[in-house]
């Protein structure tokens, strides 16, 4: 009997152990998946559900619409203008932002005095509320009484039509985005640079490599994982840009000719001013597809640059 009980106890312990091995890892990683399902997957699928229905913002579901919402949105001039604006503002903000951020990070990575002071000052614009940034920049870019155009007039240049010309408005909005995010990205890149083993640089210096050569042959390839992260987050953020164009003028609908109406503003306009949530959801899904597509392209480019650099060294 005693041996029987011992055997049973052993079996129980053994099966508990097996369960522990099999289940525990899943339990340990489950918080992420639970949270992801709640705040990532569910909204995504629910938006998809809304997008195939006629849906009133306050009244709720009004019947099946099939692909009707998508067909309507894709047939609208405003949708394509929004896509153009989004891509344009994204390029005008992300590209200069990452180049400047990398340069600032490289400068901060050198032997500076008062390191912490310089690093903190780089982050300062990020601390300012985006609303405040936009209000200040918005009045600076006023066409007739704005600071920028008045300064241009003082040095004998004609006024730039910041709120009329699409490209000028995109540059103005990109300026606000860059003001806010360059420092943040610089710090992340700096952290990446600090993690690069110093002996690589020492060896290169002994071999007679110039500063520029060291930067492109060691820093950039070694920075690859950080660069991928920064580029992907900048892509997502850039394509979903909302605060800055929303607060760029008093109506917040992207201008009288949709000069700076981005995808998110178009979505907002459909959903919240026209109360057509179904169409807004269709735009949300189309935006999601655009973000995924551009994200993949960026990933491919980043990989390619970094690996070709590696091969060269």
């Amino acid at each position: 009997m005693a041996t029987e009980a011992a055997r049973r106890g052993f079996v129980l312990r053994e099966s508990l152990g097996r369960w522990d091995v099999k289940l525990s890892p899943y339990l340990f990683i489950s918080p992420f998946f639970v949270v992801f399902a709640l705040v990532g997957l569910f909204p995504l699928l629910y938006t998809g559900w809304v997008s195939v229905h006629a849906w009133d913002l306050l009244g709720g579901e009004q019947g099946w619409a099939g692909s009707g919402n998508f067909a309507f949105v894709l047939g609208q001039r405003q949708f394509w203008v929004a896509l153009r604006n989004t891509l344009s503002i994204f390029l005008l903000s992300a590209v200069p932002q990452l180049l400047v951020a990398t340069a600032i990070a490289a400068a901060l990575d050198t032997n500076l005095r008062n390191k912490t002071f310089w690093r903190m000052s780089v982050l300062l614009p990020f601390v300012v509320m985006p609303v405040a940034v936009t209000l200040i920049f918005g009045s600076m870019f006023g066409e007739r009484y704005g600071l920028v155009n008045r300064t241009l007039a003082d040095i004998g240049l004609g006024p730039i039509r910041w709120h009329t010309d699409p490209l000028a408005s995109h540059i103005a909005i990109a300026t606000m985005v860059n003001f806010r995010w360059t420092g943040y990205n610089a710090l992340i890149l700096l952290a990446g640079m600090q993690a690069i083993p110093r002996d690589l640089y020492e060896a290169a210096t002994i071999d007679g490599a110039t500063w520029l050569r060291r930067f492109f042959r060691i820093t950039v390839p070694q920075l690859r994982p950080t660069l991928i992260f920064v580029i992907i987050t900048a892509t997502i953020g850039g394509l979903q840009i909302f605060d800055e164009p929303r607060l760029y003028d008093q109506n917040g609908l992207g201008g009288e000719d949709q000069q700076w109406m981005t995808m998110t503003i178009y979505l907002y306009k459909l959903g919240w001013t026209q109360l057509n949530f179904g169409r807004a959801a269709a735009v949300a899904w189309l935006l999601f597809l655009v973000v995924v597509a551009i994200g993949l392209v960026n990933l491919a480019i980043t990989r390619r640059i970094a690996t070709s650099e590696e091969r060269a060294t």
Binding site: G142, R144, Y145, H163, Q250
Partner: peptide, 15 residues
Amino acid sequence: HLQEWGTDWNAGLAN
């Protein structure tokens, strides 16, 4: 030619 409620409109009114 100053669109109502805009930054320039407010400044125009003040001026």
